[in-house]
Amino acid sequence: MGRYIVRRLLQFIPTVLGTLFLLHYLTTVGIQLTGNPIRALFGDKRPAPETLAALTSRLHLDDPCLKQKGNPCLGLFRERLVDIGQLDFGTNFRFRPVFDWRGFFDRAHASIITDALPYTIKITIIAFTIEALVGVFIGMRAGMKPGKSLDYSVKISTVMVISVPVFVLGILIQQFITRDFGNFLRGQEWIPEVISRGVFGSAYKQEFPFASLIIPGIVLGMLSLATTARLTRTSVHENMRADYVRTAKAKGLTHKRVIGVHTLRNSLIPVATNLGLSIGGYMTGAIITETIFNVPGVGNQTARAIFQGEPAVLIGITTMLVLVYLVANLLVDLLYAVLDPRIRYE
């Protein structure tokens, strides 16, 4: 186990560097193709050259290599790595930092991410809980009785959910459930506000910090819920026919133990890995759901950076998200080894 962890950690370093470089390169080419992004901030107005120059230099966008199309700007990459090493992910054009860890403890050091993160964490936890509990449960039941009605409905509904883009699902749910149905609820005197305005509110509300995140959380979890249910189904279904399950039966164990211990333990290995990997999906998902339901989380800030033409913020946030994603992947790998001894002793 120890050797495995060390090896994984050693492999992790080049992966991080490679991915950060890729991100750097692709965005740099983008800037080279587009031209100075600062200019765009001013729309049709022509800023004074001094203002433009000052801003450009503060945001590290004055490097001459940004004018040479295709140049990988290695110098810039090195600078960026150093910054990242110091947990500096840049600032917006008003010099508000993208990230400052002190912001978690001290309002004076507030930053874009530290302000937004709590919302994103909450919504992700809701989504993840729903995905894991409901998805695994449904998938398990469906996998144990292949060809039965639950199995078919899982098959059909997963295909449905997979083919409806999350944002379409989001806007439909927002319109028909939180607006239309919510308006109906809000018309009923006897329904408590936390339900009618909180849970079924069409946007995030400060007064209902948890209730008004439930539906956005469900929307966020929906996509991976379908995949999880389907994966669990396939995995249980396959493992039900595995030789060692037959052995467990031959050992005269009860049906409950054959399924609950011998089948399930093995079936959940790929599912657990997938649950971890769905974090990557949550990141894009959060951008969509938070935008639709106006949750002031990290995703919302990302979308805002796009709409307001703030590539520095966009790159900063994305870099951080990618780092989180890579760490999550690493943890999933380690979890995999915990669950499957064959990996551990490789």
Partner: peptide, 15 residues
């Protein structure tokens, strides 16, 4: 009691 052909797949890999 029964003995199976391929012990690698007949024994549960995770226990």
């Amino acid at each position: 009691a029964m003995i199976f052909q391929d012990a690698l797949s007949a024994l549960n890999p995770v226990f």
